[in-house]
Design a protein around this nucleic acid. Structure first.
Length: 506
DNA sequence: AAAAAAC
């Protein structure tokens, strides 16, 4: 088997690699490093967690160790889709270039230009950037890319997802035709294929087997609950999450909890904190310094639960996560694979729980067809006792009745709260309305049943799943109180606030 | 039902 010492890396690089405790290159490293050292273009097809970063940083440091940088003309360029990923590549350079005099700069958004400008002015060997900030610097005339000898594109398929491909093409065109290109992508979408055909010159293709999704090191469990009402779903899911965490006990040393939306990330983190769990949120709306701090805290163990949007799903190197909880079923099946891939790494055992409700059916089906296996169903933990609160009135509840809100002399948000209490009687009245007067909500009932039986059919029947909440014995009035969410912006706002507030006291 | 990235 190949050792790092068999590769023609600079001795300074080799000693740094040895210091970091590595002896044997991963397949992508063994495949990509030799051609990269020969100056060939490399097309690497590999997922994260395969050692991809070192497969380009090690040869880059070796190649760049001769020669010196000139002001405003970086000698190499690494492009990454997210700020964290770029920061991580930068850290990688620090580790492996520690015995050299190479200089680097990290150009990412959310940070002031000043420091970045100063570094560029001085001249850097390695520039690591997200596309937006790089082009920003370029347009301000602070940067020349004509000196770039090596260009790396990391996670190209994700760049594609994020709409960065035009930026990438533009950056390619700003660098010399003679540059060496190292290009990495997890998949070869047609658009990626086109880019590589255009900008890579007879590349050496290095393909690493796709990470097995039903990896033996990841134990997956799907926990399904059927909230009695749609508006308690999130609350019930938070209760279930806590019960799951508690039932995992000590085995859960640290975990990433994924939500689909940034607002949900905030709510879940806040709720966990209120229940004395050591949790911190991370998503793209938080400021950069906080994102970094949270991530550092999670790495060093001072944060136990990282509540995250899909910023953290891919690429981030967070070693040794014992658990992943999908608070929401991801709507892109691919993301499921990336999310659960955050655990069970490097031969360690990991567990991945996914919380689902009947509304997630469609996405679950997509995930199961992608991974070509059903996600094993798990038991609802002992401690789960979902709360079912009395139906709460919505803005629409009091919109149609005789009482008009005009002339009340109260602000909308003020009145919404008081009316919520006032409106309880009308809701109960609606319950007693005989069926002879058909309501829109009645139509929901048969559909719910259909869905439930469909699912039983597809997934091998009812396994005697524990009855949750009121189970099938949900009083009709609860089902009937479903209302389509009011669509005006202000109504949506009040609803969201109500949920956010409830996060602390549920 | 979305997230991410530029000011």
């Amino acid at each position: 088997m190949t050792k790092f010492s068999d590769l023609k890396l600079d001795p300074k690089v080799l000693s740094a690699v040895a210091d970091a405790g590595y002896e044997t290159p991963t397949p992508i490293q063994a495949g990509a490093i030799p051609p990269a050292l020969e100056g060939r273009d490399v097309l690497g097809i590999a997922q994260t967690g395969t050692g991809k970063t070192a497969s380009f940083t090690l040869p880059m440091i070796t190649l760049l160790s001769k020669g010196r940088a000139r002001a405003r003309m970086p000698r190499s360029l690494v492009l990454a889709p997210t700020r964290e990923l770029a920061a991580q590549v930068a850290e990688n350079f620090d580790v492996y270039a520690k015995n050299t005099k190479l200089t680097k700069a990290l150009l990412i958004g959310g940070v002031s230009f000043g420091e970045q400008d100063k570094l560029i002015d001085r001249g850097v060997d390695v520039l690591i950037a997200t596309p937006g900030r790089l082009l920003d610097h370029f347009e301000r005339g602070k940067l020349l890319l004509t000196g770039v000898q090596i260009m790396v594109v990391d996670e190209a398929d994700r760049m594609l997802d994020m709409g960065f491909i035009p930026d990438i093409e533009r950056i390619f065109q700003l660098t010399p035709f003679t540059r060496q290109t190292l290009f990495f992508s997890a998949t070869m979408a047609p658009e990626i294929e086109r880019i590589t055909n255009t900008f890579l010159h007879t590349p050496v293709k290095v393909e690493v087997a796709r990470q097995a999704t039903t990896s033996e090191t990841i134990e997956q469990k799907l926990i399904e609950i059927t909230p009695a009402r749609r508006d308690t779903a999130a609350k019930n899911k938070r209760e279930l999450l806590r019960a799951l965490i508690r039932s995992e006990g000590e085995a859960c040393t640290n975990a990433i909890i994924f939500c689909n939306r940034k607002t949900e990330v905030d709510i879940v983190a806040k709720s966990l904190k209120a229940h004395d769990f050591n949790a911190s949120p991370i998503h793209g709306d938080l400021d950069q310094s906080q994102r970094m701090r949270t991530l550092d805290g999670f790495r060093d163990g001072s944060v136990r639960f990282l509540v995250a949007s899909d910023v953290a799903a891919r690429g981030l190197d967070i070693p040794a996560v014992s658990h992943v909880f999908n608070f929401d079923v991801p709507s892109h099946a691919e993301d499921y694979v990336h999310r659960i891939g955050r655990t069970g790494r490097a031969g360690r055992k990991g567990r991945a729980f996914t919380i689902a409700t009947p509304a997630d059916e469609k996405y679950l089906a997509a995930i199961e067809s992608l991974v070509k296996a059903p996600i094993p169903r798990g038991e609802i933990p002992e401690g789960f006792a979902p709360s079912v609160s009395a139906p709460r009135a919505r803005a629409s509840d009091d919109a149609k009745p005789a009482r008009s809100r005009s002339g009340r002399g109260r602000s909308r948000s003020d009145s919404a709260k008081t009316e919520a209490a006032v409106a309880e009687t009308p809701v109960v009245e609606a319950v007693e309305t005989p069926r002879a007067e058909p309501r829109r909500e009645d139509r929901r009932e048969p559909r719910r049943d259909d869905r439930r039986s469909d699912r039983g059919g597809d997934r091998g029947g009812d396994r005697g799943a524990p009855v949750v909440g009121m189970g099938d014995h949900v009083p009709d009035f609860l089902l009937r109180s479903f209302r389509p969410r009011a669509s005006t912006a202000s109504a949506a706002k009040t609803t969201r606030t109500a949920v956010a507030d409830s996060a602390t006291d549920d």
